[in-house]
Simulated scan of single mutants.
Amino acid sequence: MIFDTHLHLVDRGRLSYPWLAEAPALNRDWTYAEYEATARRIGITDVLHMEVDVAQTDIDAETAFIAELIARPGSLLRGAISAARPESADFAAWLERIDPAVVKGVRRVLHVVPDDISQTSVFRENIRRLGQAGLPFDMCLLARQLPLGAALADTAPDTALVLDHCGVPDIAGGAFTEWAAAISDLARRPNVSLKLSGITAYTGGNWTLKTLRPWVDHVLDSFGPDRMVWGSDSPVCTLHSNLAEWVCASHDLLSGCTPDERAAIFHRNARRIWRIAG
């Protein structure tokens, strides 16, 4: 059983994705049907859709799009991690009107905005609101921004925070030491979990299991199996691998864990963090 906590779907005829113009390798439609065909073959049983940084005016439309897919008979989708603007004074009103049957969490990509946005009083108060609503917040930060994540965790101790993509390490550049220290520091915050996702995209393409192992071993040592979840980051994972390769690599990289620990990382923790019935 694998719970994929990080699937992106793209429908350019329905929604606007301004950033795709600068990402030609990803600039096409990525459909649920295409993903599902492979996912079922390799053991993925449950999925959360991760927002795809659509134009701000399309945020609610993206949620409606995913709600339709969730409602399909036999769908693997269990909910959406919605885009939002916690820096906005309108956030509280937005939070009041979302459908909790669909929206299971929230993300604001923080490496596309000025660093100080996540440090404002409005942003921090709205992240605390998420905790009060029982909704986790996915932190998408570059490695240099990991201290910002630690500061946010300290100001919202009752909100579950999930660090995406192992903190976007520069694996290709071998920038291990500073990243590792920042990961260890962030892991001291008990309200933060880590998502094992997307890291093949940071390898430059010439990777093997040996390339990835030190980075995965470090996050496992820092957070432990009870505060880690798994995500495909599909289709971004296709930049330097594919969905099946990432699943296979993940099984090997976690082979030193006990069966119970692997079950926690691959599916049990996701159900707990995002409150998904088993």
Rank of each mutant, 00 (worst) to 15 (best):
R72A: 14
D154W: 01
A277C: 13
L48C: 08
E245R: 12
T57F: 10
R213S: 15
H267A: 11
W19K: 05
T5I: 09
T177M: 10
G43D: 04
P73D: 02
A151I: 02
D185H: 13
S75P: 01
C237D: 03
E68N: 06
A175W: 00
L212P: 10
D90L: 13
D260G: 04
G105A: 06
A175R: 13
P114N: 10
L69F: 00
E261L: 04
D115S: 13
P24G: 10
R97D: 11
R28T: 14
R128A: 14
L9R: 00
W230K: 09
G224V: 12
G79Y: 01
L48D: 05
R227I: 09
S82I: 05
A150E: 13
D11V: 00
A89C: 05
T159D: 11
V10F: 02
D4P: 06
I276L: 15
V168R: 12
R128F: 07
A187D: 09
S197A: 15
A39H: 00
G205C: 10
A249G: 07
V192D: 12
R12M: 12
G256D: 08
R213E: 15
T45K: 07
L194H: 02
W207Y: 06
G173M: 09
A61V: 06
L76A: 04
G74T: 03
H8A: 03
G173L: 09
E261W: 03
R144F: 12
P157T: 05
G256R: 03
K104M: 05
R108I: 07
I273G: 07
P73K: 03
G256S: 10
V229D: 04
L161I: 09
L243D: 06
L141P: 13
D260R: 08
V103W: 01
L141D: 09
D164N: 15
V162E: 08
A33S: 14
F65S: 06
A249R: 02
P147T: 11
V113E: 11
P73Y: 01
K195D: 13
W30K: 02
H218R: 04
T208N: 06
V109T: 14
P86Q: 03
E178Q: 15
R227P: 12
L253E: 03
E34S: 13
G205F: 02
G149C: 10
V229H: 12
D58I: 09
A201D: 07
G149W: 03
H251Y: 08
F176K: 07
G205K: 00
A83H: 09
D260H: 05
L163A: 06
S241F: 01
A37Y: 01
T203V: 12
L130V: 08
F223I: 09
A23N: 08
W207S: 12
A64M: 06
Q145W: 01
H49K: 00
C257N: 03
P18E: 06
A264T: 03
L186A: 13
I273P: 06
I42N: 02
D116A: 14
L9D: 00
A153F: 11
R108K: 15
A33T: 11
